[in-house]
Amino acid sequence: MNGEIQIQKAYESILGHDFEKAIEWFEKAIAAEPNNAAYHYKLSITFARSNKLLNAIEHASKALELEKENEVYRYHLQVLHARELVEKAHKQLSVESEHAERAIFLLKEAITLDPLALEAYLILSEAFAFRKDYARAYQTVMEAVRLDPNHELAKQHAVLYRQKMKYKV
């Protein structure tokens, strides 16, 4: 028995915006074909969209384990690991922002894994600003603006950091 019918049902659930049901259908497809890397990958995407990052990483890892040379699976897993690092850094900054060094390290690693991680640039710029390193905060937030020229928060922070650099606050 293969899992194609379950995959079809999962996609129908996604189109109906029922991601929990989609997850159930993907899991049934995997039960039918546990070594089908594509099914693990698809489930990983659905978990990621549902903000279930650890589950997403687990299935992305399984997909890559099953198809070690698949660059799409490898990149997807990198992006998920980047999101995980951003979340850890964000928590670290909100708990003990006076020790921003660890968060900065995590955010730089996240950007290495996913150079398009806009949130990582925004949080990294905030970490630099907290240390009153407004030049680096400005430089970092401008990377976010380059990624998304219409991102209002990034543009506002760029103006703020530029003013603080000018007046050396």
Results as ranks from 00 to 15, higher is better:
residue 61 S to W: 01
residue 161 Y to F: 13
residue 62 K to Q: 10
residue 116 L to Q: 11
residue 8 Q to C: 02
residue 14 I to Y: 02
residue 106 L to H: 07
residue 13 S to M: 07
residue 51 N to I: 09
residue 153 L to I: 11
residue 91 K to F: 09
residue 34 P to F: 01
residue 46 T to L: 05
residue 28 K to M: 06
residue 107 L to V: 12
residue 58 E to C: 08
residue 46 T to R: 01
residue 98 E to S: 13
residue 103 A to G: 09
residue 134 Y to N: 08
residue 57 I to M: 05
residue 157 H to N: 11
residue 19 F to G: 04
residue 2 N to M: 08
residue 120 A to E: 04
residue 109 E to F: 09
residue 157 H to D: 01
residue 134 Y to R: 08
residue 81 H to R: 15
residue 97 S to R: 10
residue 25 W to H: 12
residue 20 E to D: 15
residue 89 A to L: 05
residue 56 A to I: 06
residue 168 K to M: 07
residue 113 L to W: 02
residue 61 S to C: 08
residue 133 D to H: 08
residue 121 Y to E: 03
residue 118 L to I: 14
residue 80 L to Y: 00
residue 157 H to T: 01
residue 99 H to G: 06
residue 105 F to A: 08
residue 129 A to W: 03
residue 46 T to V: 13
residue 21 K to G: 06
residue 63 A to T: 00
residue 160 L to S: 07
residue 32 A to K: 13
residue 39 Y to D: 08
residue 132 K to S: 11
residue 106 L to E: 14
residue 156 Q to H: 08
residue 132 K to G: 10
residue 12 E to D: 11
residue 55 N to W: 03
residue 134 Y to I: 04
residue 132 K to M: 12
residue 66 L to S: 05
residue 87 E to W: 04
residue 169 V to W: 11
residue 24 E to N: 06
residue 61 S to N: 13
residue 4 E to T: 10
residue 163 Q to M: 10
residue 72 V to Q: 12
